[in-house]
């Protein structure tokens, strides 16, 4: 309850500060936030758009929450999503024509998850075996993963003659089915909900989850009671990578129906923001991810209607993170005394 109140306070404070910025830009915060709300909830299509936007944040956010619980600061979501997207696209584009859609999509999503997992394990390997801080490993691999998308679009998967680095449109069988026919809402959100629930069960109801929590409390203590911290680190990174990779597969197949350059832009950091706002609780990642998805969807509408730049979302997000972090730190301090 206390944490909920503090999170709400952090969000309110961030929105308040941002209102000041909108004033500074010579617009009315009331009008701007009104446009934002309409853009987020105004119609079934807007809601569908926002739900699709939330999906990758929730999926990758659950992975980040699990990692952070174990004090493994995995900020490699963007690279893992990018590589997952590449793997899923490769399966869809290279599958023989006439493959059964269910099989093709299942394989594509699996490939996406595997691709993301491999990328995360690579970072975990450098972290565990070579003792390089995981923030730097995951971060540097983000840049490489994103460039890898451009590289595969240049040669093997790219569309000839397209003005933009993108793959050819996927065959229909490679499009993620719609959840509500007639809207853009695809079934990805179901995966996101499942990930949040399963992540919750994993963290609080399994031995592995317990190990992660012990490790988060103290690595030496975990090692002392017989937890292989290296193995647990690999496992949680692989899991988070798989979730992020799946998010990448869902994004290309469900939203763009093709691989395009920059499709993962900012997703990794958003996943971190979402996990933090959720207090590192996988189940709470669901509302936090939805919040961010609707916020972004609304901000895009706000930019169109009122002319307030949508980059304001990053300001809100950054402020929110800082405030939540301060609240968490303050809380820990009070507990200690």
């Amino acid at each position: 309850m206390r944490t909920l109140a503090m999170t709400a306070g952090a969000i309110a404070l961030a929105l308040l500060v941002t209102a000041g910025l909108i004033l500074l830009a010579g617009k009315s915060p009331v009008t701007a936030y009104g446009a934002l709300l309409r853009g987020a909830f105004g119609s079934l299509d807007r809601v569908a758009f926002a739900l699709n936007k939330s999906t990758p944040y929730i999926l990758a956010g659950v992975g980040v929450a699990l990692c952070f619980r174990a004090k493994v600061i995995n900020i490699g979501g963007e690279g893992q999503i990018a590589v997952g997207g590449i793997a899923a696209s490769a399966v869809i584009l290279l599958a023989p024509a006439g493959s059964p859609p269910v099989l093709m999509l299942a394989l594509a999503m699996l490939a996406g998850a595997a691709g993301g997992a491999v990328w995360a394990i690579l970072a975990a390997w450098v972290f565990i075996k070579r003792n390089v801080h995981e923030v730097l490993c995951t971060l540097l691999l983000n840049f490489v993963g994103v460039l890898l998308v451009s590289e595969v679009l240049r040669a093997p998967l790219g569309e000839d003659g397209a003005g933009f680095p993108q793959s050819p449109l996927f065959p229909r069988a490679g499009w993620l089915p719609k959840l509500i026919p007639g809207t853009d809402l695809h079934i990805g959100i179901l995966f996101a909900v499942a990930a949040a629930v399963l992540g919750h069960v994993l963290l609080w109801r399994t031995t592995f989850g317990f190990r992660l929590r012990v490790m988060g409390a103290s690595r030496p203590a975990a090692a002392y009671v017989g937890v292989s911290t290296a193995r647990a680190t690999f496992a949680v990174m692989a899991l988070a990578g798989a979730l992020a990779g799946l998010a990448g597969g869902i994004e290309v197949s469900g939203v763009h129906n093709r691989l395009i350059e920059g499709f993962s832009h900012g997703f990794g950091f958003n996943a971190v923001a979402v996990a933090l706002i959720a207090g590192l609780n996988p189940l709470a990642v669901l509302p936090a991810g939805l919040f961010l998805g609707f916020l972004e969807a609304g901000a895009l509408a706000m930019q169109r209607e009122v002319g307030v730049p949508s980059s304001l979302v990053y300001v809100i997000e950054g402020l929110m993170m800082v405030f939540v972090l301060c609240a968490v730190g303050l809380n820990a301090r009070n507990r200690r005394v």
């Binding site: 600061i73 980059s311 304001l312 979302v313 950054g318 993170m321 800082v322 972090l325 303050l330």
Partner: peptide
Amino acid sequence: FRADQMVTGLAVNILSLGLTSFLLRG
């Protein structure tokens, strides 16, 4: 406030990206 140093750094990076881009237009 004893906030986590790594993640505070990331938050500030996002904040800076947003603020500079917003102010440039705003």
